[in-house]
Simulated assay, not measured.
Amino acid sequence: MVQLKNDERLDYLLAEDLRIIQSPTVFSFSIDAVLLARFAQVPFRKGKIIDLCSGNGVIPLILSTKTKCPITAVEIQQRLSDMAERSVNYNQLDGQINVINGNIKDMPELLGHGKYEAITCNPPYFVTPSKEVINPNEHLAIARHEILCTLEDVIRVTSRLLKQGGKAAFVHRPGRLMDILTLMRQFRIEPKRLRFVYPKMGKEANTILIEGIKDGRPDLKILPPLYIHTDDNQYSEEVREMLYGDR
C-alpha cells in the first residue's frame, strides 16, 4: 500500500510496469522527462548515476529499468522529494534509488567531485519573469522557472559531479541551445549528441535533447528528428513505444 496525500494519485508508467505518485496541483511529469530518460546513455552495471532537479522521481524510475547501477535523485522541493521517495518505496526500488531533498548547488561538496559516470537533468526551462506573470503555484513556478537554480548552475554542478569521460544528458527548449552549448564547453562538457524534437512533421522543434562528455573531443552528432505526433494527432510509433512499450 502507498499513502496518498491531498489530491495525489497513483499513475502507471506502462512501458516500465511501474507506478508513480502525481498531483495536478504539486507536480505531474511531462513527456520531456520520458524523452530524456530514454535518450540518456547510462552504464548498465558499473558506476553511479545522479538525476538533478528530479521532481517526483520519474527519470530515476525509468532509468532503473535500463541499469543495475545505483541512482541518486536530487530535488529541492520537500513536497516533491517526498512524492519521489514514496514512489521509489512503492516500487521496491529503495535498494537502487536514493532520494535526496536538497539544493543541487550543494551536491558536489555533499556527494564528492568527479564521482558519477552519468548525470541527467530536466531543469527549469524559463528565466524568472516578473512577479506579475509568474505562476502563483509555488511548486509549479519553481519547477518551470529559474528561481532556485539557473541553467549555468545546472551545468556547472553537473561538471563538478561528473567523472572525466562521464556523460551528461539534458532536455531543454531550442531557444536556449546556444546558451547550453556555450555553458557546456565553458564547464568542460563537450557536446556529443543532439536531437531535435517536433510536435509533428511541418512544425518547428519545441524540445531538444543533448548529451555531452566531460573533457570529450569535439565531434557533435545531429541525430534524426523525433516527432511526437502523427498527422492525425496520434502518438508516433517511436513515442508509443517509449510510453506504452508497444509498436
Rank of each mutant, 00 (worst) to 15 (best):
P224L: 09
L140H: 14
E190W: 08
G165W: 11
V157M: 11
I155L: 14
E211P: 03
G202C: 03
H113E: 15
P199L: 05
I100N: 04
G212W: 04
N101P: 05
N137T: 12
P225N: 10
V154C: 12
C121N: 12
A141L: 06
R188G: 00
R188F: 11
A168L: 03
L162H: 07
I100D: 00
E152L: 03
R176W: 00
Q164S: 13
P136C: 10
N137I: 14
P218R: 13
L161D: 06
S159A: 14
K192Y: 08
A169R: 07
L177C: 00
I142R: 02
P199E: 02
N103L: 10
I155N: 00
F170I: 12
G95P: 04
L140E: 11
Q186E: 15
G212I: 06
A84G: 12
D82G: 11
K167M: 02
F126M: 11
I189F: 03
A168K: 01
R193A: 01
Q92C: 06
N135W: 06
I100C: 05
E132F: 04
G202K: 06
G95I: 02
E85T: 10
V127S: 08
L223T: 10
L194W: 07
Q164E: 15
P129F: 06
V99E: 06
I180G: 02
N103A: 12
R79N: 12
T120L: 09
M184E: 04
L177V: 00
